[in-house]
């Protein structure tokens, strides 16, 4: 029962905290460029403003266009309910399966691209196709990295993987570490940050489909995209950096787990923001080369697994 409450709390907190994460990234970006920049809470203001606006859909659009924003948010909440955040184990073990999580991440992406084609706008359509292409390139790389971890830990459950890694029980430390590096690279591509996208201005690589959304639908989409960033980072933390999270359900252990989780996420987003501000946007055609690099790292991890180190 406590675990179910914990899972629901996680999902609600995810929705509440999502604009804060993107807002602080924008604020830091402004500081890097020595601008005054928007306040950290700016994304909350933007979203509350969007909710007051009219919800417009193009004439030709079907139910897909209306369904996508709530579906995106719903799926992200569902995924986050299964990810260990303050605890070492998954609050709902059924949802903690890593293959399920990856496939659940594909579902909103498919609807995202479909809704773009659904609008009839050619610009959004191109954005949708690019979004799908990125999915096709990143997700196999992500799965390959996780595949090595699954082999090394002998389980597909996020919580149990984290437990093995956290107690250094995995027999192949080098393979797991390298798989973690590959997974972190793939995660960064999923975040939709600068070399691959610039979410503040017009969207080009990822998130192109947003161009035909307005009002509350756009607000939903924005929250969902920010939520996705937190979900991806939490997945990385849960599997590869689970150190310090609560192994039993006591208040002090969980408080420590929460503090450490927040610290890890803040550090990761800080590193991401630094990286985001020192690179230029990558040409779309070169994206495939970089996902191949991730595949290369994952293949090396597989070798180390075979060698038993």
């Amino acid at each position: 029962m406590i675990l179910i409450i914990l899972a629901c709390l996680q999902a609600i907190l995810l929705v509440a905290a999502a604009p804060l994460v993107s807002g602080s990234a924008r604020w830091m970006r402004a500081k890097f460029q020595t601008r005054k920049g928007p306040p950290i809470l700016q994304d909350y203001y933007d979203i509350s403003k969007l909710f007051k606006r009219q919800d417009l859909h193009t004439k030709d659009s079907s139910f897909v266009h209306r369904l996508m924003p709530p579906l995106f948010i719903g799926v992200m909440m569902l995924i986050f309910m299964g990810i260990p955040v303050v605890t070492r184990f998954s609050p709902i073990p059924l949802l903690g399966d890593v293959i399920l999580i990856i496939y659940l991440m594909v579902l909103p992406r498919l609807f995202f691209a479909l809704s773009a084609i659904d609008t009839g706008s050619s610009y959004a359509g191109v954005g949708g196709i690019r979004e799908l292409l990125i999915g096709v390139l990143v997700e196999p790389a992500m799965l390959l990295a996780l595949f090595v971890t699954i082999l090394a830990t002998g389980t597909t459950n996020v919580g149990e993987m984290g437990m093995m890694v956290g107690s250094f029980a995995a027999v192949n430390p080098v393979a797991v570490a390298l798989a973690g590096v590959a997974f972190a690279c793939a995660c960064y591509m999923e975040l939709g940050k600068l070399p691959y996208d610039l979410a503040e201005a017009e969207q080009e690589l990822q998130e192109g489909p947003l161009s035909e959304y307005s009002g509350p639908s756009l607000a939903y989409c924005k929250i969902a995209l920010y939520m996705k960033q937190i979900v991806v980072v939490s997945l990385l933390v849960a599997i590869f950096i689970p150190f310090g999270s609560a192994t039993e359900l006591t208040v002090p252990a969980m408080a420590l787990g929460l503090v450490l989780y927040l610290a890890k996420v803040v550090v990761i987003f800080f590193i991401c923001t630094i990286f985001e501000n020192v690179v230029a946007r990558v040409r779309f055609k070169l994206f495939g080369h970089q996902t191949w690099t991730v595949v290369g790292i994952a293949a090396l991890a597989l070798v180390f697994f075979v060698l038993g180190i």
Binding site: T293, G296, L300, L302, V303
Partner: peptide
Amino acid sequence: ALVTTVLLVVGEVI
């Protein structure tokens, strides 16, 4: 290409 080299090395080690 980079990945070809990496995969070649991977194959050789295995």
